[in-house]
């Protein structure tokens, strides 16, 4: 891949002005934000606001990306990707260079953000991600190249945002761009057809990556290898059933997976509240309405205690009654 990037790369020195041939707008380059397979993204200033400008020699892939960004901005309600501003051509001495301008999303990448936070934040971000994915899928698109590097936490309040939409593909087509570790085709666990379960597999691999920050190599591949890694890891234990379902493509949509995660997290907190002795029984039984071994045994205990109280009360009643009866007899 190095070879193509050599061909596609356009080095824009800091301080240069990128000016558009069609719309006549000018952007002052502040610094490089990152470079990928299709081009380089720069932080730039326009008027008094900061924007991100992607520059590439590959007219085809950059045009394709702009198409996706435009479609995404049409998805109403939420901002899914960075919002698209404009596309133009920059005429330089070494030829015409196409570029596009988008919103500059400021924040930390997912794992950098997690370094200083507790585990529960990871769960919350996953829930946010799945909620956003559900909307994207409903709009007829699949993210494709889903991985921690493409997820940014902006805020406060912390909110997960998507960075690179280069892999975003219309549902039903072949996924355009992917990263092997997060790709189900690579693990021999499915096709690269753009469908919701493709993205969900990648979410599963993000959970794996969270537990194994250095990632791992493919050995035998498939569920056999992943299962071993899940069983061996402390963090992954509780995700076991969810990971099983997601790696077997058993979730039809992001909402189903989100629901399971939501239950997982609330069950955990419910178990915590039962440890405190003065919890209200009514609230407890409500929280434990989800089926689960821990919840069920707790409920049984409460029931037993109640039975005991009832019997005692009845006995006391009978006993008092009997005494009154005896006293009546003797008088």
């Amino acid at each position: 891949m190095m070879n193509t990037s050599k061909n596609q790369e356009v080095n824009v020195p800091i301080g240069s002005i990128i000016s558009g041939k069609w719309n006549q707008k000018q952007y002052l380059v502040l610094r490089e934000l990152g470079s990928g397979a299709t081009g380089t993204v720069y932080l730039a200033k326009y008027d008094h606001s900061k924007v991100a400008v992607k520059v590439s020699r590959d007219t085809l892939s950059i045009t394709s990306e702009v198409n996706v960004l435009k479609h995404l901005s049409k998805v109403q309600g939420k901002t899914l990707g960075p919002s698209f501003i404009e596309m133009d051509d920059w005429v330089t001495s070494s030829g015409t260079v196409p570029f596009y301008v988008m919103e500059y999303v400021q924040g930390e990448s997912l794992f950098v953000f997690m370094r200083q936070r507790k585990d529960e934040w990871f769960g919350i971000l996953l829930l946010q991600l799945l909620g956003d994915l559900a909307e994207l899928h409903n709009a007829g698109w699949v993210f494709g190249d889903l991985k921690p590097d493409n997820l940014l936490i902006s805020g406060p309040p912390p909110k997960i945002r998507w960075l690179d939409v280069g892999g975003t593909t219309m549902v039903g087509r072949a996924v355009k761009e992917y990263t092997e570790f997060f790709d189900r085709g690579f693990w021999g666990m499915g096709s690269r057809r753009a469908e919701p379960s493709y993205d969900l597999f990648a979410v599963g691999m993000i959970i794996m990556n969270y537990a194994y920050p250095k990632r791992f190599d493919k050995k035998e591949g498939g569920w056999t290898q992943l299962k071993k890694l899940i069983d061996r890891n402390r963090i992954l234990g509780k995700y076991g059933p969810i990971l099983y379902k997601v790696f077997h493509g058993q979730y039809q949509n992001a909402i189903e997976m989100r629901q399971d995660l939501l239950e997982l997290y609330s069950r955990k907190s419910a178990a915590k509240t039962t440890n405190t002795p003065k919890g209200k029984p009514a609230a407890q039984t409500h929280q434990q309405s989800q089926p689960g071994r821990a919840g069920r045994t707790q409920q049984k205990k409460i029931k037993k205690r109640r039975h005991f109280m009832e019997t005692v009360l009845i006995f006391i009643f009978l006993f008092v009654f009997y005494i009154v009866y005896l006293m009546g007899q003797t008088l």
Binding site: T59, V66, T96
Partner: peptide
């Protein structure tokens, strides 16, 4: 050629290219 079109039109042509590629 495609590169000579304004960005808007270019996007439309690219959708056709993507569609054929699929």
């Amino acid at each position: 050629q495609m590169e000579d079109l304004p960005p808007e039109k270019r996007g439309q042509v690219m959708e056709v290219v993507d569609e054929i590629g699929e």
